[in-house]
Nucleic acid binder design. Structure first.
Length: 590
RNA sequence: GGCUCCGUAGCUCAGUUGGAUAGAGCAGCCGCCUUCUAAGCGGCAGGUCGCAGGUUCGAGUCCUGCCGGAGUCGCCA
């Protein structure tokens, strides 16, 4: 149940009545107002700006904003579950709800459990979320982690908000990089056969290719050793890619990330003998006049020495909002990355997606317009591509930046970080920042189990709820602590302001979910969880000085029962929020 | 130089899509452990929301121009 949606609808009804009586224009959009929790709790439970939003229309129709506010307030005040409703300040209508509304929220949270706050099936259809998409040339590093965690949490959030979500990974297994990978693996293969090798500049030196070399030696013996590259490149490359993707999947699994679909760039190019979807897509666009042969002006800014003015195959992205047309064929005749990415996004559209979300690093920001242009051209404007950029992560250790160079020794892999600090802190810290704000990730602080670390703070609140339940079981062995039983408690006994604060916060959860999903900002869930944890810790501590406020009251079973319902609901909502973030909700912190 | 993003307390950051007196956490100071786990709680102090205009009932939020920082700028992905 979402009391904000509920009252949005109710205010809408009252507003339409006022508009009809006043002869407002029939085509006026009467849904532009908001029903929100007021910033000041003293203003009540709900607040709406409807009277201010439509002040102009009220004036135009010969009435005035004050009359509109009074009419809306009167309509709301007459409702059975509304305590008071009155215009205030510059024209807000503040609504105070009867306690039964919050009792119903509590009952809903207990009965629905993990489904409390889940939105109904959205009419907007299915959505494709593409994230990570790291090159299959080595283990994931910390920079990848942010996009991975963000994309995963966003997918969770959209699914919870009623969207049908597909989590997808685009495997860049077609470019020059995977040939370099193959050559590097081939050296490890020769090494496995007993040669002593050195890895030249430009190849991947990491130890992670040694097992790949050993496996090649087991499979082929020395059959490949003296072959020309043209013979061994394809089989070595294929096996190296498979091995790298297996490693990447393991790295992701360590962060509790699982994609449903892995799409291969190589498969789109027809490089291994299949149909050439990239070529077909280009041909199709050429027929439509969107692809042409022409020249580009030299790049602005720093003059580059190797600039060569030449005719090339160009995508007319400027017709769709881009700044300059973009090349599709490289000077060596191969497809540009953009060309295969066009075919890839076409495949998403062909699979029926009209809502596409790509999660990229901020260093790809210059690529956004052309990809959106491509999606607009491919779908005739029907599909929409939303690109969420994640700023890069600065890895720190005790305040000092950790240097990351491509040479293997200084390379900090995602796996090393997860092994050192755990998946939960990595995920939560990365989700406490807005995706487009830069992030310092301090290994020393993240592992610290202190108040400095919001992960443990929130998890502790959840664990503390369960601790209370454990205590209750000792004090009242016969009490039924199952949520369904607690939902029948007499919640009229919950009259303390701390208890009401918790109920208000829980009533807000469904709204936060919808807003976070619409804004595509999972960090809002992290802040919500932290706020709810604060309310719980705060109220728990009140029981220290005022023992009558403690949850477990040995001489009053029915009061204890009601309070345990509150505690169980709090635990449930905390667990839901953490679950959206992909963070565990432990029952104890030991 | 063009484009994108950022600029809010000493530090790290939120700010409910334009709302009421701008909020947290660290750091600093003062308190709270015979307690349902102190991994916690309460209080004090801390601000020309980078600068200047504009839009309107109302701007940290939207528009324009500056200042400062990050990223990016045909054939790498």
């Amino acid at each position: 149940m979402n009391i904000f949606e509920d009252f949005q609808a109710r205010v809408g009804v009252a507003l339409r009545a006022f508009a009809a009586a006043g002869g407002w224009p029939a085509d006026l959009d009467l849904s532009r107002f908001a029903v929100e929790p007021p910033r000041e709790a003293a203003h009540g439970d709900l607040s709406t700006n409807a009277a201010m939003i439509y002040a102009r229309e009220a004036n135009a129709a010969g009435s005035n904003p004050r009359a509109l506010a009074d009419a809306l307030a009167a309509a709301l005040a007459a409702m059975p579950d509304v305590e008071t409703a009155a215009a205030a300040g510059p024209g807000f209508i503040n609504i105070r709800l009867k306690p039964e509304v919050y009792r119903n929220v509590l009952v809903a949270a207990l009965k629905q459990g993990a489904d409390f706050g889940r939105a109904g099936k959205s009419a907007e259809g299915k959505v494709n979320v593409e994230y990570v998409s790291a090159n299959p040339t080595g283990p994931m590093h910390v920079g990848h982690a942010r996009g991975a965690v963000f994309g995963d949490a966003l997918a969770n959030l959209l699914a919870f908000a009623g969207r049908e979500v597909t989590r997808e990974y685009y495997v860049n297994d077609a470019g020059a990089q995977v040939d370099v990978l193959a050559r590097s693996a081939f050296l490890r293969y020769r090494e496995a056969l007993g040669e002593s090798v050195s890895i030249p500049e430009g190849l991947y030196p990491g130890d992670y290719l040694k097992p790949v070399g050993a496996a090649l030696a087991r499979e082929f013996g020395d059959a490949l050793r003296d072959q020309p590259e043209a013979e061994w490149l394809a089989p070595v490359r294929a096996r190296a890619i498979v091995a790298m993707m297996a490693m990447i999947r393991e790295d992701l699994a360590a962060l509790n990330i699982v994609h449903e679909v892995f799409s291969s760039e190589r498969a789109l190019t027809g490089a291994d003998g299949g149909p050439d979807w990239v070529g077909a897509t280009i041909a199709d666009l050429r027929e439509r006049g969107i692809v042409y042969v022409g020249r580009l002006p030299p790049p602005k800014g720093q003059p580059s020495d190797d600039w060569e003015d030449r005719e090339q195959t160009l995508f007319r992205t400027t017709d769709f909002g881009d700044d300059i047309d973009r090349p599709l064929i490289k000077s060596d005749g191969g497809y540009t990355y953009f060309a295969s990415d066009i075919a890839y996004h076409k495949s998403k559209i062909d699979r029926g997606f009209r809502a596409l979300i790509d999660v990229w690093g901020a260093d790809h920001g210059g690529y956004v317009k052309r990809m959106q242009a491509a999606v607009a051209a491919l779908s005739g404007g029907e599909a929409k591509l939303d690109v969420r950029l994640c700023q890069l992560v600065r890895l720190m250790r005790a305040g000092e930046p950790v240097k990351m160079s491509k040479r293997s020794g200084d390379f900090v892999t995602l796996r090393e970080v997860v092994d050192e600090v755990g998946a939960d802190p990595v995920r939560f810290i990365m989700l406490m920042r807005k995706n487009d704000a830069p992030l310092d990730f301090d290994l020393a602080k993240v592992i610290e189990q202190s108040q400095d670390n919001p992960v443990f703070y929130v998890q502790y609140a959840h664990a503390r709820c369960h601790s209370v339940m454990r205590q209750a079981r000792i004090a009242f062995p016969s009490l039924d602590l199952e949520p369904a039983a607690l939902a029948r408690a007499d919640f009229r006994l919950l009259a303390d302001e701390g208890e009401r604060g918790l109920m208000r916060a829980m009533a807000n959860f469904p709204r936060v979910v919808i807003q976070a999903a619409e804004a595509r900002e999972p960090h809002r869930i992290a802040f919500y969880a932290h706020d709810l944890a604060t309310l719980f810790h705060s109220h728990w501590n009140r029981g220290k000085d005022a023992s009558h406020l403690r949850f477990v009251n040995e001489i009053n079973a029915s009061l204890t029962n009601a309070r345990l319902g509150l505690v169980a609901a709090t635990a449930s909502v905390l667990a839901s929020a953490l679950s959206l973030l992909g963070v565990n909700a432990p029952a104890e912190m030991r």
